[in-house]
């Protein structure tokens, strides 16, 4: 084997690891099974059940979705750069998967936040109903100056999309944890 050949083979091997395939409606055909699983076929290859993961869950949730095999290896099949280019059915299926995976109730109203011994007790109204949960000291993450992600002691997440939309009283309670 000549040096050139080795280099070529090497490049191909590394290339497989380093290159990302982008999935478009032209090659990728998604479908939803009866049991609610998402499956994918690309250019005739059937991958069976797949998972969809957001690459930028906070800053760009509808774009740069990584589609992976649902087995333990979770090998990436490809990325969706923009979900909007797919047909409405596919958008619906994928959105359903994403909403299941990223189940994060949005906080609409803060009723009460109590603090005791390093834990804060939140009583909030969310788009999924009223919730009461407990956070430890690292529970509140600032995603931006006005956007907060709140995780309770079991890792359940809640989002406060815009602190600017809160009343002065709510803001005063939340402000202590920002």
């Amino acid at each position: 084997m000549t040096d050139q050949n080795i280099v070529k083979k090497e490049e191909q091997l590394v290339g497989d690891l380093l290159e990302t395939r982008f999935l478009t409606p032209r090659g990728a055909i998604f479908s939803q099974t009866e049991g609610g699983f998402l499956s994918l076929a690309v250019d005739g290859t059937d991958y069976g059940r797949v998972k969809v993961i957001r690459a930028f869950p906070f800053t760009d949730p509808a774009r740069y979705l990584s589609v992976r095999q649902a087995d333990n290896e979770e090998r990436e099949i490809g990325m969706i750069e923009d979900l909007d280019v797919f047909d409405p059915d596919t958008i619906g299926w994928i959105t359903r998967q994403l909403e299941m995976r990223y189940f994060v109730p949005k906080i609409l109203k803060v009723r009460e936040i109590k603090e005791e011994y390093g834990y804060s007790y939140w009583w909030v109204e969310t788009d999924k109903g009223t919730c009461r949960f407990t956070c430890d000291q690292n529970g509140v993450t600032k995603l931006s100056d006005t956007r907060l992600l709140i995780s309770d002691i079991d890792g359940n997440r809640f989002e406060l999309a815009d602190t600017g939309g809160l009343s002065a009283k709510e803001l005063r309670m939340v402000d202590l944890y920002m």
């Binding site: 834990y119 007790y121 009583w123 999924k128 109903g129 009223t130 919730c131 009461r132 949960f133 407990t134 309770d152 002691i153 079991d154 359940n156």
Partner: peptide, 12 residues
């Protein structure tokens, strides 16, 4: 779910 509030672990 029928009751008004969803109560997570730890909330007393």
């Amino acid at each position: 779910k029928r009751s008004a509030d969803k109560v997570f672990a730890g909330y007393r």
